[in-house]
Nucleic acid binder design. Structure first.
Length: 592
RNA sequence: GCCGGCGUAGCUCAACGGCAGAGCAGCUGAUUUGUAAUCAGCAGGUUGGAGGUUCAAAUCCUCUCGCCGGCUCCA
């Protein structure tokens, strides 16, 4: 570990202590206002802290100023945080006296003989600590939101009221954090999707997006690129039905394990399920013919639309939908080919992320969970193959023990967007279950039948969700190759509309997605309008440009680029599109 | 699903028991415009839906649908 890492860790510890102390102050403030409130837990979290309360009144954001005011008073009084150790029994008596039933439950879960409490002013809380020295050290905090949260995350247990808040040692950091939250709101893909005319949602189809013409262009552009890469890598693409009969899902195990998430439909005598996953369809394709080891690795891709019923409360724009396309592919291969194939997949996923503008990502390997199928040997071998593949690619990874699927170990890719948020996208999973259930076979070199290894993998995961990530990452200001409208021609006045038409047509013929704004408006108005639509190139044409056969080029991020001859515009833009040039940073030049 | 909040014109919001409004967008006209909003006029609504309370409901109550913030960060 480098020295700087140590310091980061110390800072991190301090911040946790700081926020944990702020959580105590908040709990004390809430207790002052609602003396009968019972306390749940109040830990520091990544961007702040929260505290859970059980009380009959409902806390709303309207109550925040009052709580914050009380917190400021506690901070101003500068009470010391005093640690005291008690025996288990003393602790129990104290909490019983206070009627803190949740804390009592936590206490029961502790095995230690002695426990610690922290006292500041009149407020006492069961707490491991550590804390700051005094409440006066807390400089900047803000309550953010209130939400219901089940006690211990268990929906069978009572629901408490959780107040989310944040605190920073430096008020400037708090301001910066709040500005970041604002920035994220501005970049909300649901807002961008509306402003840019990409997609919409309707009550008639909860959790199922409607893509509008410009949204379809974006969607298709992403998939065109995906197909190009996959074809070059030797994948072949199939399409399988949206609905398949029930016995298939019994065979695959989905009926048993996944039925709550499936849309079912009975038509006449037959029951169908709308597919929640693509693999069973692919397996029917595989079984359609006999296979030889000579065909391996056999790479079968499917951009398959799946439907999954979700709890209504979890739907969230394109991030969490009930109908979406997975960029699936299944690789059938020999055991000894696994490592090599995984290496190639990892390589491809990274290259795709980089092209789209996500150079930063984290990789996680999940190992065998408690309830799972397959032999220890299979798991051991497969897990080692995955690790080896990452090591060959020189990729750092983190191991999540026991987090694998029941049917095999997996690698997950978490991309990091420019607001430093992490999103799980790509996945590579080994599957011991399906080949077995579907009795897959191939003929080996020895002339006997064997069971192939099946690798299940996706780069984007859900296309819909990935689009949302891309949109928020770029704040809607997409790289040229992805922009639904790449250039808009803006005539100064009606007099140059004809010339504008010629310019637009010429660009369109060169394969550039160009539009013309022929509305009877002033140029400032048209520029504003183009910017709000996040169109990368604005081409202003007036009499001077008409005469010169040029256009005045204005770029969404770079501003005025000067007057370019049409030929140069065509070449520059085509070159930028073909190279899929991205932006180094995605935080500059925000349209308002 | 659960807790809380919110559904008013295409969008952003006002009216919070007493005639449903504004800005932007849209349409029509005038203007012929040089780098982030030209002016005027017109049109736009069973206030998400159903039921109830009331002389009177966007407003209060019940149900329902949808959306938003959360519900695996364990003293």
């Amino acid at each position: 570990m480098r020295i700087s890492d140590t310091r980061n860790m110390e800072e991190h510890d301090y911040l946790d202590r700081y926020r944990h102390s702020a959580a105590h102050v908040m709990a004390q403030a809430v207790k002052r206002i609602y003396p009968h409130a019972r306390l749940g837990i109040g830990p520091p979290i990544e961007d702040g802290f929260y505290y859970d309360f059980d009380l009959p009144e409902t806390i709303t954001p309207d109550d925040f100023p009052r709580i914050e005011e009380e917190m400021r008073a506690i901070v101003a009084a500068d009470h010391p945080f005093q640690r005291r150790e008690l025996s288990f029994e003393e602790g129990r008596r104290l909490l019983e006296e206070q009627g803190e039933i949740y804390k009592l439950e936590l206490l029961e879960g502790l095995k230690d003989d002695t426990i610690s409490i922290y006292r500041s002013d009149g407020f006492v809380d069961l707490c491991r600590g550590p804390h700051l020295e005094r409440t006066g050290e807390i400089k900047a905090f803000k309550l953010l939101s209130v939400a219901g949260a089940y006690w211990k995350g268990d929906e069978q247990r009572p629901m408490l009221q959780r107040i989310y808040a944040t605190a920073f040692p430096d008020p400037r950091e708090l301001r910066r954090y709040l500005a970041g939250v604002e920035e994220a709101k501005k970049r909300d893909h649901r807002k961008l999707g509306r402003e840019m005319g990409l997609f919409s949602f309707h009550e008639e189809a909860p959790g199922a997006p409607f893509f509008h013409p410009r949204g379809v262009v974006l969607y298709r552009t992403l998939l065109d690129y995906w197909r190009e890469v996959h074809e070059a890598a030797g994948y072949r693409e199939i399409m399988t039905p949206l609905m398949l009969r029930d016995h298939l899902w019994h065979q695959s195990g989905h009926w048993e394990h996944y039925q709550d998430h499936m849309y079912l439909s009975t038509v006449g005598e037959q029951t169908f399920a709308v597919k929640p996953m693509n693999c069973p369809g692919t397996l029917l394709y595989y079984r359609e013919t006999q296979h030889s080891y000579r065909e391996f690795p056999l790479k079968v891709a499917e951009l398959g639309r799946v439907h999954r019923r979700e709890l209504t409360g979890v739907l969230h724009g394109l991030f969490r939908v009930q109908s979406f396309v997975i960029d699936d592919a299944h690789i059938f291969c020999l055991p000894e080919q696994v490592t090599g194939e995984v290496v190639k997949v990892v390589d491809m996923i990274i290259s795709i992320y980089r092209t789209i503008g996500f150079p930063e990502f984290a990789v996680e390997i999940s190992t065998r969970p408690e309830s799972s199928i397959g032999s220890d040997d299979d798991w051991e071998l497969a897990t080692r193959a995955l690790k080896e593949a990452l090591e060959i690619n020189r990729i750092d990874y983190q191991v999540s023990e026991g987090e694998g699927a029941f049917y095999g170990p997996k690698i997950d890719f978490h991309i990091r967007d420019c607001l430093k948020r992490s999103h799980q996208c790509g996945t590579i999973q080994l599957d011991f279950s399906m080949p077995e259930r579907f009795n897959l076979e191939y003929v080996g070199a020895d002339g006997n039948k064997h069971r192939p290894v099946m690798i299940h993998r996706a780069t984007f995961g859900s296309i819909e969700r990935f689009l949302a990530i891309v949109l928020e990452h770029y704040g809607g200001v997409l790289p040229l190759w992805l922009a639904p409208v790449q250039a808009v021609v803006l005539p100064i006045s009606a007099r140059t509309i004809d010339y504008g038409r010629r310019v637009r047509k010429e660009l369109a013929e060169a394969g550039i997605r160009a539009e013309l704004d022929e509305r009877d408006e002033k140029i400032g108005y048209k520029i504003r309008s183009a910017r709000l639509q996040r169109i990368p190139y604005m081409l202003v044409v007036g009499p001077a440009e008409e005469k010169a056969g040029s256009a005045s080029v204005r770029h969404l991020r770079q501003g005025q680029r000067g007057e370019w001859p049409l030929e140069k515009i065509r070449e520059e833009l085509s070159g930028e599109i073909a190279a899929r040039t991205g932006y180094d940073s995605c935080l500059l030049t925000e349209p308002d």
